[in-house]
Write a protein that binds this DNA or RNA. Structure first.
Lengths: 209, 209
DNA sequence: GTCTATATCCTGATAGAC
DNA sequence: GTCTATCAGGATATAGAC
């Protein structure tokens, strides 16, 4: 084992954190299940907190780079992109076809959803820095697509949008009770996207109250 | 101290859990800050887990009863209630004027928002049971207000709605970055409600993708 | 009902041999 | 880089006097 150890820790920690949360997952459990020595965590990462940050950086940096690339490509055209196209650039990278996607990536989105709402302040702030550029660029693009929307209104509606996305990513399936139809399996992410975009676009475009 | 002790524990635990999360808040901290003996928690509640459930029952049972009362009153009229009226019946009990409201109630809504996304499965299931009737009744009312909306679509849109509400209740203020205007203070809950209802109503009514 | 004192366990982190 | 062994602290829960 050499650098493989690092990856094994990252993968197992990510999976366990997504299932049980940070506080209820001990370094002992992680290292045992990853068949790695307990001391390896502190050797490779320095602390549990640093391990958590490494997990977020590993997934979030490429994800947000792809979002920015998609948005940049949309903006090369002559006409400004539609609201729906902007939303798709933001959402699509998180909802890829599971067949040809690292399953860890899907687990991570669940972890991310739970973290946005529930994590400790320092961790939320760290995640925030990883999101800063994306929120800035997409906020601007949405504002240009909805020029008549006042700034504070835009602020809140983007906040609401983040709520929908992170809650959906968390996959809590709150609504098992509202109807008898089962929630669609996580397989058809494309269907989920076809539902998310009209809902969000309509909400963002709603007439002022 | 008699039954006062119970209340003191509940109030302090609620405040500390909302700030720091469940796992990072020890019974020692709670009892010390509440100026109550450590053993009192186990005498009055039996365990930390049972204390957490007691906190949720105390606030959620009356809250959901008020929601159901408001909905029942809406449905006494001849015409079926509008979508906006249904949403207001659901949301208004959580956004009361802070001036004449127990501040603990407001803290609790933050705790609830964080819990929906981030808590352990057993706790989420417990909260779920406290929500079952409300989700069933409001799901039906929304369905009657939007008769052309297919069931699975309804299911997901109500799910999205819960995401917006719980994320907003969690008060994570993700969007500090999207614009330069500060997020409005938590005082003007009425303004927040005036923003939430048009956003949600538009999303629920969105044309199918 | 309240308190002191303590049992039992598990945590993150580290020192130091290999 | 990997391992064993261990430290120091904090957790929940309880036994038993008052």
């Amino acid at each position: 084992m050499q650098d493989d150890t690092r990856e094994r820790i990252l993968n197992m920690a990510e999976a366990l954190f997504a299932e049980q949360g940070f506080a209820h997952t001990s370094l002992r459990t992680i290292t045992t299940r990853a068949r790695v020595n307990l001391a390896a965590v502190n050797y490779h990462f320095g602390s549990k907190e640093a391990l958590i940050q490494a997990i977020f950086s590993r997934r979030l940096v490429p994800l947000n780079r792809e979002r920015l690339n998609r948005l940049a490509e949309l903006e090369t055209g002559a006409a400004p992109p539609t609201l729906e196209a902007i939303l798709e650039a933001f959402i699509a990278p998180t909802l890829k076809d599971p067949a040809d996607t690292d399953p860890g990536e899907i687990r991570f989105m669940r972890l991310l959803g739970r973290t946005q709402a529930g994590a400790s302040r320092p961790l939320r702030e760290f995640v925030h820095t990883l999101y800063a550029e994306v929120l800035d660029r997409f906020g601007g693009a949405i504002s240009r697509a909805l020029p008549e929307l006042p700034q504070p209104e835009l602020y809140w509606r983007v906040h609401f949008m983040m709520g929908v996305l992170s809650y959906t990513q968390a996959g809590t399936a709150t609504m098992k009770l509202v109807s008898d139809c089962d929630p669609p399996g996580a397989e058809d992410q494309a269907a989920l996207q076809r539902r998310l975009i009209p809902f969000l676009a309509a909400g963002l475009r709603a007439p002022l109250g």
